[in-house]
């Protein structure tokens, strides 16, 4: 016997809907507005006395509060979004959902620092996209089409935050999503948040990056103006050529589908991670093998924090492989 996550009424193991409130028991997702990242009950110094602003009454250290560090776990998927060490707030957001026997969907959006309230933009975008993708999983509709619709919905949600008199700083964000169903993984993106396929050791399908950044530098590399090495050092390497938000216009995502024959993980992340671990080799060197998604996410975030944590870091890990999808 378990309980309904919505109304806490007892539900049977085979119930599809809660008899009490009618909630679909086969669907679970991150809460709208983001996972609750409230402070740990205990400071690292051992004190349990934390003041209203999140400072320890003993050692004075600030405890993570609100969006500073968000963690969430569902079956076969886990995510962490961390403020990092330099930024005053976390402008990244993540959302994901799990639909029993159908699959999972996940989105990472990175608020554009030069726009206003970009934390609100990224949160509105992931929540809007997640609703679309989870519905598509429930209904079994086409993942590629769902991804396009999710981006449109996310773009609208972020765009609604814009103030008419401040269009040039309209809240904006990047977008990357993944939908895992029985027929494969569909990845969609706008901007420079990335998706990677990280294969199990010894697999025939090698690890690889699934996305190409929508940045001016990446565009110049594609056009042969810059080499990869030059682009990394170019000040334009992070200047986005496409994004979501009030000043983005109509945006359709790049969409790719992968059909892995063997096991591995799909990693979604913001540039707070890939700035430190850009190549699949870098990621492969850090990630633990045979570990649960949350543990992998924690190790990756810790590596970025250890390397300096210059930006917000968001990591979502999705298990892919025979027998691991339930």
């Amino acid at each position: 016997m378990t309980n309904c996550p919505e109304c806490d009424a007892p539900v049977g193991a085979k119930d599809r809907f809660c008899e009490e409130c009618g909630r679909n028991l086969l669907v679970r997702a991150t809460p709208v507005g983001g996972p609750d990242g409230s402070a740990a009950a205990q400071c690292a110094c051992g004190s349990e006395d934390i003041d209203d602003d999140g400072f320890c009454e003993q050692c004075g250290r600030s405890q993570p509060v609100g969006r500073d560090r968000m963690e969430f776990v569902l079956p076969t998927i886990a995510g962490i979004s961390d403020r990092g060490r330099r930024r005053a707030r976390n402008e990244d957001s993540m959302a994901f959902g799990h639909v029993h026997a159908r699959g999972v969907a996940a989105i990472v959006c990175d608020g554009v620092a030069s726009s206003e309230r970009s934390d609100e933009a990224s949160q509105a975008a992931v929540d809007a996209a997640n609703a679309v993708l989870v519905d598509a999983l429930v209904e079994g509709s086409d993942p590629e089409r769902a991804t396009v619709l999710a981006v449109a919905s996310a773009n609208r949600a972020a765009g609604e935050l814009a103030r008419p008199e401040a269009q040039d700083v309209a809240p904006s964000c990047t977008y990357v999503s993944a939908m895992r169903t029985d027929s494969g993984v569909v990845v969609g993106w706008v901007g420079d948040s990335r998706a990677y396929w990280l294969a199990d050791d010894g697999a025939k399908t090698p690890s690889r990056r699934l996305t190409k950044d929508d940045t001016w530098a990446a565009q110049l590399v594609a056009d042969g103006v810059l080499t990869e090495a030059e682009a990394v050092n170019d000040r334009r390497s992070h200047v986005l050529s496409r994004w979501l938000g009030g000043d983005s216009g109509q945006v359709s995502p790049h969409v790719v589908t992968v059909v892995p024959e063997e096991g591995g993980i799909v990693l979604l992340c913001s540039d707070g991670l890939w700035n430190y671990l850009p190549e699949v080799e870098d990621l492969d060197a850090v990630r633990p093998r045979g570990a649960a998604p949350l543990e992998i996410a924690r190790d990756l975030v810790a590596a970025a924090l250890h390397a300096g944590g210059h930006d917000n870091i968001t990591v979502v890990v999705i298990e892919v492989g025979v027998g691991r999808e339930r």
Binding site: F55, G60, R61, S62, G84, R85, L305, G308
Partner: peptide, 30 residues
Amino acid sequence: QVKAAGVGDRMLAGRVSVLTAGGDVLGQGK
């Protein structure tokens, strides 16, 4: 003078309160 901490750490280094003789807090700053 506080204990040194790592780059990226935030600390409350002091809390200043204004008190009456009776101990009522009239204002506070961090």
